[in-house]
Write a protein that binds this DNA or RNA. Structure first.
Lengths: 268, 268
DNA sequence: CGATCGTTTGATAGCGCTCAACCGTCGTGG
DNA sequence: CCACGACGGTTGAGCGCTATCAAACGATCG
C-alpha cells in the first residue's frame, strides 16, 4: 500500500496516541476488514467513517455489555475477546478477534452491545461510526454489499462453531481451535505453525466449553503425541495435517474458514 | 390478523401453484421477515424481488449444500430445518425455521449454500433474488439497513446457542429449546404454551448436541415434574416460568430473543 | 521474598452416550 | 380388514469422557 502514514489531526482530548487518525488506504489490514469490491474513490470515502483510533492495554475494555451501540470496531493490532456475563455470574467467552476482524456486529439489531469486549494484549482499534457508515452505505453500494458478506461469513463461522460444540469431543475442539488460529494467522501473513496465544487456558476452555484442566491435559497430550510443542503460550505446530485430521475437518471460528484456495465472493 | 386473505390462486395441490406470485403487502408475515423502517412505496418495490413462491411437501429439499447461491428464502408457512453433512457422513442440524424467518443468510459470503434445507412439513416459501435485492438495496437504503439488522439478530442468536451448547446441561438445553419455540410461536400469534413440534426427537437431539435417548428421557422427566405434557409431538407447557428457570435464562435460538417488551431497533 | 494468578497433574465421580430391546403408529399391500 | 414392516419413540443397563475437587508448581509482580 502507500508508503507513508498520513496522520490527519487530533480529535477530542485523550491520551496522546489514541485520537490520531490514519488514512484507510494505509491500513495494511484494510483488505481484511472489508475486502474487495470497493473502488479507490469509495475507499477514500470510507475514511470519513473512521471516528477514532483507540489504543487498549491488556485487560482494558473496548465496550461493556449493555452499553448503547454506536460504532463497529476493527482490530488493527493485538487481540480481543468478547464475552457475556450469565445471570449466575459466570463469564462466557463468545469470541476472539485478531487483526483485521470486525467486532460488535452482533450489536446492530438490538442497538446495544450484547457482550463486552476486552483487550487480551496491547491492541490498537479502529472505530467506525455505524450511523455514518449506514449513511454512506446509501451512496456507496459496494460498502453495504461487503458488509453483508462479512456478516454472512460471521454467521457461517458461528455455524461451524455450533457444530463443534454440539458434536465434537474435547480433543477435536482444541485441535479445531488451534487450527483456526493457524489459518487466521497465515491469512495475516504470520506463521501458521508458530504463534503465541494471547488468551489464557481458562479463556480457551471457556470458549470451547471445556474445563481448564481438560485444556491443559490436552495440550500435554498433543505434545506427547508429537503434534506440537507448547511452552507457556507459545505454540509450535509440528504436524498440521494430523492436527487437521484430529479436528475432524472443521476449520472453525473466528472470522474465516477459507484457505488460500479461492477467494469467496458471490456471483458478481 | 387481517380479515381476508386475498388468495391469488389455488391452494396446495400440485405443482401448479409453485410459480404464482402474491403481493408482499398481503403477506401477513412480511413484518417479521424484514420488519420496520420500510415505507409504503418501498414495500411495493420489494415485491419485485420476490422471484417465486414455492410449495414444499414434508421431506422435500429447498436447496442442497454446495449449490450455488442465488436467492434468500422466507418461510411463509410450515417449517424447515437446515443441516450440513459432515465428512464422516453424519448429519448436523444447524437450525429450524418458522414462518417469517429468513433462510440462507449464511450463503451470501461464499456464494454457495453451506448447508441444505429440507421441509419438516408442508411449507410455503418466498424466494428473493439476492442479486435483485442488492441492486434494489442501492436505491432503497432502508432495505439494506434492515437486512443488516436481521443478520445481526441472527448473529446474536447463534451466540446464545453457542453459550447453550458450551455451558449448559442437557436439561437446560431442552428447556431453552422449548422456550425458544414458545416465544417464536407467540410472536407469530400462535399459542406459546400449546404447540406441535414439526421436527423429530432425533432432529432435536442432533441440533442440541444430545442423543435421541437423552431427549426422550428429558421429555418424560419434564412431564413427571409437571412442567409440561407431551404426547407424541404435541407440547403443552404447564409451567412456563419454571421452564424459563430451568433454561437458565437463555431464550436461545431460531430467530428472535426479544419478547413482547420492546422492539429492537438501533438508535435512529 | 511472599502473594497471587495461571498452569499442570492426580484422583474421583457423574452426566450423558452407547448398545440393546421393546413398543406404538403409520403406511403398504395382500 | 388385517398382517406386516419400517420408523420413530421410549426405557433400561453399563461405561467412558470430561467436570470437579484437590494440591503443587511456576511465573510475575509488588
Amino acid at each position: 500500500m502507500a508508503g507513508n502514514v498520513k496522520l490527519s489531526v487530533a480529535g477530542p482530548g485523550g491520551a496522546a496516541v489514541a485520537d490520531k487518525r490514519i488514512a484507510c488506504q494505509d491500513c495494511t489490514l484494510f483488505q481484511l476488514c472489508l475486502p474487495l469490491g470497493i473502488g479507490e474513490d469509495e475507499l477514500a470515502l470510507l475514511d470519513e467513517v473512521i471516528t477514532a483510533r483507540r489504543s487498549l492495554k491488556r485487560g482494558e475494555m473496548l465496550f461493556r455489555g449493555g452499553a448503547p451501540f454506536h460504532a463497529i470496531y476493527a482490530v488493527r493490532s493485538g487481540s480481543l475477546k468478547t464475552y457475556t456475563i450469565m445471570q449466575d455470574g459466570r463469564e462466557q467467552v463468545t469470541g476472539f478477534y485478531l487483526p483485521g476482524e470486525l467486532v460488535a456486529l452482533d450489536a446492530i439489531s438490538l442497538g446495544r452491545h450484547p457482550s463486552s469486549a476486552k483487550a487480551l494484549e496491547s491492541s490498537s482499534i479502529c472505530e467506525f461510526s455505524f450511523q455514518d457508515f449506514e449513511r454512506m452505505g446509501a451512496r456507496v453500494p459496494g460498502l453495504q454489499r461487503q458488509m453483508l458478506r462479512v456478516m454472512s461469513r460471521e454467521l457461517l463461522n458461528d455455524e461451524l462453531l455450533l457444530l463443534l460444540l454440539g458434536k465434537k469431543s474435547a480433543e477435536e475442539r482444541l485441535a479445531a481451535f488451534l487450527l483456526s488460529l493457524a489459518i487466521r494467522f497465515r491469512q495475516r501473513g504470520f506463521s501458521a505453525t508458530d504463534y503465541n496465544l494471547s488468551m489464557s487456558r481458562s479463556d480457551i476452555g471457556n470458549y470451547l466449553g471445556l474445563a481448564v484442566e481438560t485444556v491443559s491435559r490436552l495440550f500435554t497430550r498433543f505434545q506427547q503425541d508429537g503434534l506440537l510443542r507448547v511452552e507457556r503460550r507459545r505454540i509450535r505446530i509440528h504436524d498440521i495435517d494430523r492436527l487437521s485430521l484430529l479436528a475432524g475437518d472443521t476449520a472453525l471460528s473466528g472470522s474465516q474458514r477459507i484457505d488460500s484456495a479461492e477467494v469467496p465472493q458471490s456471483e458478481r
